[in-house]
């Protein structure tokens, strides 16, 4: 309980100090939203011209796209403190020490150390496109689908959050942030915006068995859109998104704890 209150307090501080630079905040929110809109408009124009991709209509691809955008935007805001770009500064400058000197969990403090509100731009944008996509494809909503949708989003937040945590932890060893992690995070959102059938087999296998991205957006979307599974996996894999997300997050968390212990044994 205390932890939750403290977290909210720390987040509130972040939000308040970001609101102090109002023009900058608005412009940055705008730029984030704009980037997301432009990617989508490009996609929409091209899909219209080519009449869909791999048998998926514009609306269906927009659904995939929006779900990832929305989830990644949420994650990017909540996990801002673990964003390797920001976190690398901690390991480089040794500012982690000040958190370790306080009698509160380090993980909680890192969560509370950054809360980038301008990511709202992306969340807002994702929601808008999701609404548009749902209009286009006429999803047959059932109770199951309505209940499952937030769980899928939560699963993706945990999945991408885990990747952020992984990227942050690696900086304990490398000091500099590793740009290659961006392949999984930012590259992951791009990958997950399209039906998985378009990728070569080795790539799809990688994102099934090594980094299980396929279960987070593609398979749940097959369920929402009532599409058949071209890869003939068991039906149940449409519903494991939250479990997979949680699993990735927990694995990353264990690695993070290990990294913190390593940091304490080597110092900066």
């Amino acid at each position: 309980m205390k932890a939750l209150r403290l977290y909210l307090w720390l987040v509130l501080i972040q939000v308040r100090s970001q609101m102090q630079y109002r023009v900058g905040f608005l412009l940055e929110t705008l730029s984030v939203a704009l980037g997301s809109i432009i990617s989508f408009v490009t996609l929409a124009l091209v899909l219209q011209k080519f009449e869909g991709i791999a048998g998926w209509s514009l609306g269906e691809v927009a659904f995939l796209f929006a779900l990832v955008e929305l989830s990644f935007g949420l994650m990017d805001m909540i996990f801002s403190g673990f964003d390797p770009d920001y976190f690398a500064a901690h390991t480089r400058q040794g500012t982690l020490d000040q958190y370790l000197l306080r009698p509160v969990s380090l993980t909680l403090q890192i969560f509370g150390s950054q809360f980038i509100l301008r990511r709202l731009g992306r969340i807002f944008q994702g929601t808008l496109i999701l609404v548009y996509a749902v209009q286009l494809v006429n999803i047959e909503w059932t109770v199951g689908k309505i209940l499952y949708l937030p769980l899928v989003i939560a699963g993706m937040v945990l999945f991408f959050g885990g990747l952020f945590m992984l990227g942050a932890t690696i900086t304990f060893w490398t000091v500099e942030r590793i740009e290659a992690v961006n392949i999984l995070t930012y590259g992951g959102t791009e990958l997950m915006s399209y039906p998985m059938t378009i990728y070569q087999d080795w790539m799809r296998r990688f994102f099934t068995y090594i980094v299980p991205a396929i279960f987070l957006n593609y398979y749940p979307s097959l369920y929402f859109l009532d599409r058949p599974d071209p890869f003939n996996m068991p039906f149940v894999v449409r519903f494991i998104a939250p479990v997979v997300g949680l699993g990735v997050f927990l694995a990353a968390y264990v690695f993070w704890r290990f990294g913190v212990r390593y940091y304490q044994s080597t110092g900066s």
Binding site: V46, F50, I53, A54, G187, Y194, P195, I198, Y199, M203
Partner: peptide, 11 residues
């Protein structure tokens, strides 16, 4: 990624 998208678009 973009090449895969391109190939799929062209069909």
């Amino acid at each position: 990624l973009r090449a895969a998208v391109m190939a799929a678009l062209y069909g």
